[in-house]
Design a protein around this nucleic acid. Structure first.
Lengths: 128, 128
DNA sequence: CTAAGGTTTCCAGTAACTGGAAGGTCAACG
DNA sequence: CGTTGACCTTCCAGTTACTGGAAACCTTAG
């Protein structure tokens, strides 16, 4: 199938599919005589897999690892679990950061009158 | 004062200070004869202000707005409050996204044995 | 045969820096 | 006075994961 068909199946923009082939993440299994990329069903599954992993916030390099584990029939689940755990740790770290930002900013907003006067605790705080 | 001194005061890498001058966010108020950037106390305060705003996750362009409000003695606090509220909304959106990722990934991890066998619900889930 | 719409490659831009090279400057030490 | 080391300058490239666009080629329908 051509690139627009596989892109539709994988729910990715064609630009992204082309990009993934360029960086060697998921290449087309062949080319037509005219040089068009020719994707197989298996390629489509891989692209789908990558899209879902990306939605989970795995980086391209992590996707590369996951993909090789996905393709490895002899893989152990521990390797995959370790990658997922790393990702979970990152998420928790980010959550803690966002929570403290949320606390700080909402506190500032609560104390800002938000009227036409120039007094502003937000500016004052940033100015310190 | 020279760039390394102002960088130390503002707690920013000199590279970043140079970058901020390059993009016209906070320029040095002058240059020495030899062409060295020459920063004033006020420049130092602005750089500090920007660093703190960046730590709150404001983008460079938002910092530009905040900076012009900071410099405007006639500003109304409502403009600043609106920017902060936008930032808070973004934070809350990101928090919701991270929460659903956390739920999904931790669920997958809980169901993965993580041993030497190839069976892995994480891969299975991504494969669907 | 032509026109529309697909495909190719290549180049540039995004956000916000960061690293490094080549070269000019400054202060101190002997 | 020379030199050494630590500054400073500009410019270029790389980072992440695409995205937009141009020029040129291919395919398919009418």
């Amino acid at each position: 199938m051509n690139i627009s068909k596989v892109a539709k199946i994988a729910q990715l923009p064609t630009k992204t599919v082309r990009y993934y082939s360029e960086i060697g993440l998921v290449a087309a299994s062949g080319r037509t005589e005219a040089g068009y990329r020719d994707y197989s069903e298996q390629d489509a599954r891989k692209l789908c897999f990558v899209r879902r992993a990306r939605e989970f916030g795995f980086s391209i390099e992590e996707c590369r690892s996951l993909l090789s584990l996905y393709e490895d029939r002899e893989r152990s689940s521990s390797e995959v679990k370790a990658l997922a755990q790393t990702r979970l740790d990152e998420i928790e770290q980010k959550q803690r950061e966002l929570q403290s930002l949320h606390t700080a900013i909402s506190h500032l907003i609560k104390n800002c009158s938000g009227d036409h006067r120039p007094d502003c605790p937000i500016i004052d705080y940033l100015e310190q």
